[in-house]
Design a protein around this nucleic acid. Sequence first.
DNA 1: TGACATACCTATAGTTTATGTAGCTTTTCT
DNA 2: AGAAAAGCTACATAAACTATAGGTATGTCA
Lengths: 143, 143
Amino acid sequence: MLSIGALSRQTGTKVQTIRYYEQIGLMNEPGRTEGGQRRYHVSDLDRLAFIRHGRQLGFSLDAICEFLDLSDNPDQSCSHVDSIAQRQLVQVRQRMLRLRALEAELERMIANCDGGSGQDCNVLKVLSDHSECLTDHDSIGEG
Amino acid sequence: MLSIGALSRQTGTKVQTIRYYEQIGLMNEPGRTEGGQRRYHVSDLDRLAFIRHGRQLGFSLDAICEFLDLSDNPDQSCSHVDSIAQRQLVQVRQRMLRLRALEAELERMIANCDGGSGQDCNVLKVLSDHSECLTDHDSIGEG
DNA sequence: TGACATACCTATAGTTTATGTAGCTTTTCT
DNA sequence: AGAAAAGCTACATAAACTATAGGTATGTCA
């Protein structure tokens, strides 16, 4: 049996966050000691690790909820889950492209700076460029 | 001159969000019509597009504020610009590293998912197996 | 010109995903 | 036994939006 602190340490999740996940129904209510402290099973640890991993990959708690549902009743089709992951991958790739542009611009600015003359800053230009982003307007939140 | 709705459509930003950005000082207060409606210049559109792209890349509004400062006062002292740019560059590179790891994982997830039943859904497998995960533990929020 | 739909306005409250704090209780360690 | 560490609830705060209510402007079509 694990205390909430043990769970916290082993998953890198704040204690409060674990309680929050319980509150919103993402984690099951665990058993309690006589004195009222939470005690978890290893399966809870797995579930929490799953959730955190999903968050690290950028999935919303809602999406993770769907993953967990599928995992709880594995007879359903997983195509929906798959499409969520696909969408996430598209976003990740778009972000990388933009980051590369931004990296180049920052490097250029820093180089110019060393040269000592007055600089022009194109940071805004590289990221305000609309040409390659017609498809992802709705992609800030995830689904 | 663009209405707030036009700005909204062209950048994929909710009208409320644009007003929110104005409220917190990220967007300048635009001119108004006689009747009190906001009217924007194309430069506002660029600025907003920049902000949205920055957000899509995971930068906080604070960080975006710094970028905008660089762009607004390009004749600031070199050392100031340089230090901000350096710091942001570090962030950008960290972000790219993380995204590369995520990309690999998402690819792994999606591979072999034929939309069949959840029994052998790779997405779920990848999410529950943390061992091959290269992403670092504390990297969920942004800097 | 006038009606009407649509877009816009302000103000306020709610959402998501947590994190922080206060004041008290339980567990654990020596 | 007594203290320190960890846990408890409840409430507050944060960032970055998003929604709603109730009213006003604007633009278009007859």
